[in-house]
Simulated scan of single mutants.
Amino acid sequence: MAEVSPITRQITKETQEVGALAVDFRLEDVEDCLIYDRHGVGVPFKKLYEDRKAVLIFVRNFLCYSCKEYVDDLSKIPRKLLQDANISLVVIGQSAHRHIEPFCSLTGYPHEIYVDPERCIYQKLGMKREERYTDSAHPSPHVKSGILIGQMKSIWRAMTSPAFDFQGDLHQQGGAIIAGPGSTVHFCHFDMNRLDHMPINWLLQLAGVQQTLDFDDKPKIIHV
């Protein structure tokens, strides 16, 4: 009999603490969903976290300016920092696999990346569709563009892309999960809107990284 994962709790940015029960899912329900690499090769989702702890970042569509700027900062995380903590960092999008290579070239993202073009995992885990804003929400510290300028950038990228499509469902929101080894879920956060990203340093610290990165310019490690 498969081991049942513990109940997952959502951590909000407002408290930075384990809050009220928000979602209750088992990774066993999605472990065999196929995700695809930049070459279109499918692998089961469980491959990402079965052997070691993984920080899994689900993004909206690859044209979204806020996702692009969030991944810009994810790309600044040194490989050695992750290796020393024995964790992996994985971005998961919902476009066709052909969009992975251009997105990585645009952001400089060097770590693992896959796509879930049918949104199988997004849907089964209950990630939100549509956007919801609240007065208490804190905008992502990793998004530098305002909404108007950001949307103009997204439209321009769509118009100049060799394959004109939206590179994913425009209404689908993302999230972050820390899982593994095995099907244990340590943390999850499902985004309420395009700016509701978990700060990267919080995610890294929750995953066991002891250093803090400064994302203002080049990533400088601050020992704490």
Rank of each mutant, 00 (worst) to 15 (best):
T8V: 15
T8K: 09
T8E: 08
R9C: 07
Q10I: 12
Q10R: 15
I11P: 04
I11W: 09
T12G: 08
K13W: 07
K13I: 10
K13S: 09
K13Y: 05
E14H: 11
T15R: 14
Q16L: 14
Q16I: 02
E17T: 13
E17F: 11
E17Y: 09
V18K: 13
V18C: 07
V18N: 08
V18S: 13
G19I: 08
A20K: 10
L21C: 07
L21H: 11
A22V: 12
V23L: 07
V23R: 12
D24V: 09
F25W: 07
F25V: 12
R26Q: 15
R26W: 00
R26H: 11
R26S: 13
L27S: 02
L27G: 01
E28M: 01
E28P: 00
E28W: 02
D29H: 08
D29C: 00
D29M: 05
D29W: 01
D29Q: 11
V30E: 02
V30Q: 02
E31I: 00
E31G: 00
E31T: 00
E31P: 00
E31R: 11
D32K: 13
D32C: 02
L34F: 05
L34D: 05
I35E: 06
Y36Q: 05
Y36E: 05
Y36T: 06
Y36G: 04
D37Q: 01
R38P: 00
H39C: 01
H39Q: 04
H39N: 08
